[in-house]
Structures are given as structure tokens and as C-alpha cells.
């Protein structure tokens, strides 16, 4: 007798194995009760979506929170620093949401002041900040919006630039700060035209 024939004989034995009579007669009833209890516990099929949904919302909050934290930390960053691109991204979002580019003008002015104080000229960051400051001032000026606000902002920038220039008068503060002062003057003048 080969092994397969042997297994065929054993198959008959195997199939004689059955659960108890009690189980066979009551098994489905018991299971149905369990299923009913389970469904009664969570009668609304929406329940099964609540947990994944709650998890997704939590995840969004965590991401949003992380981004907000990162965005806040990035506000103090200067050109060339790792968080600087996040600062640019968040100011783009703010200016698009508010339709106001003054946030960019203010940020560039702060950067010019900070970079000048640091004496950080050799990497060209200060020059680029001044150039961007000019562009942003021109944009706001050309848009014709927030003219009065722009004038006030540029006036305060002019004072800040002059203060920094005086503080750094002994050192090699360079031509960038003079350029920034000129932009703040011309910008405020253009508003008067």
C-alpha cells in the first residue's frame, strides 16, 4: 500500500471527528447571540470609522503643531541658516492669506539690521537681503495698497537702519546699509507721489 492510499484510509477516521452534540445543536445560536451583542455595543456602523478618523485628526494636529512650532522658531532665522526656507514659506502663506506683502518688507528689514549687526557681509547674504528688500518695497508700492502703512513702516525702518549704521560707524559696515536707507527713503517718497 502506498502512502497516498494509506492517507485515504486515515481520511475516513479524520472525518469521523466531530464536535459534541451540544455544540452542534447550540453553536450557531450562541454565536448569533455574540454577534448581536457585538452589534448592539456598536449599533452605528459609523462607529467603526470614528477611531481612524480621530487618529487622522490627531495626526493633522500633530503635523500642524510641528509646522507651527517650526515656523515660529524659523522667524528668527537669517539668510543662509537651515530654518530660513521655512521662514520664507510661512511668510508666503501669510502674505497670500492676507493679501499684504508688508510682512515680507518687515522681515527683510529685520534681516538687514541683524546681518549688519553681525557684520556678516562676506557670504553675500546682506547684499541679497537688501536686494530682496528693494523688490518687496517696490511690489507693495506698485500695488497701491497699504500706502499709508508702507510709509509708516519704511519710516521706522529708516530710523532702525540709521541707528545700526551709527552703532557700526567705527567698523566696516559697508555700503549695503546705506543702500537700505536709500530704499526706505525712496519707498516712502514713492508713496507721496
Amino acid at each position: 500500500m502506498n502512502i497516498e492510499q494509506h492517507l485515504k484510509i486515515l481520511k475516513e477516521d479524520y472525518q469521523k471527528t466531530e464536535p459534541s452534540e451540544k455544540f452542534l445543536s447550540q453553536g450557531w445560536q450562541d454565536l448569533e447571540d455574540k454577534i448581536n451583542r457585538l452589534e448592539h455595543r456598536h449599533p452605528n456602523p459609523i462607529y467603526r470609522y470614528i477611531r481612524p478618523l480621530a487618529f487622522a485628526v490627531l495626526l493633522i494636529f500633530v503635523f500642524a503643531g510641528s509646522f507651527t512650532g517650526l515656523a515660529q522658531a524659523s522667524q528668527r532665522s537669517l539668510p543662509g541658516e537651515p530654518l530660513y526656507p521655512i521662514k520664507k514659506l510661512s511668510e508666503n502663506i501669510i502674505s497670500t492669506a492676507t493679501g499684504n506683502n508688508l510682512v515680507k518688507v518687515n522681515n527683510r528689514a529685520k534681516e538687514i539690521v541683524d546681518l549688519t549687526k553681525k557684520g556678516n557681509r562676506n557670504e553675500g547674504n546682506l547684499g541679497r537681503a537688501v536686494e530682496e528688500y528693494r523688490e518687496e518695497v517696490e511690489k507693495v508700492s506698485k500695488s497701491g495698497k497699504n500706502t499709508k502703512e508702507l510709509e509708516d513702516v519704511l519710516e521706522s525702518h529708516k530710523r532702525e537702519f540709521q541707528e545700526v549704521k551709527e552703532d557700526k560707524s567705527g567698523s566696516n559696515s559697508g555700503t549695503e546699509i546705506d543702500e537700505a536707507i536709500e530704499i526706505s527713503k525712496s519707498g516712502s517718497n514713492s508713496g507721496e507721489d
Partner: peptide, 11 residues
């Protein structure tokens, strides 16, 4: 379905 498969699964 239960009645069809219960013995097989039990075994």
C-alpha cells in the same frame, strides 16, 4: 455558512 463549515473548522 457556519453550518457548512463548522465541522471542518472544528476538526
Amino acid at each position: 455558512i457556519y453550518k457548512t463549515f463548522v465541522k471542518k473548522i472544528f476538526r
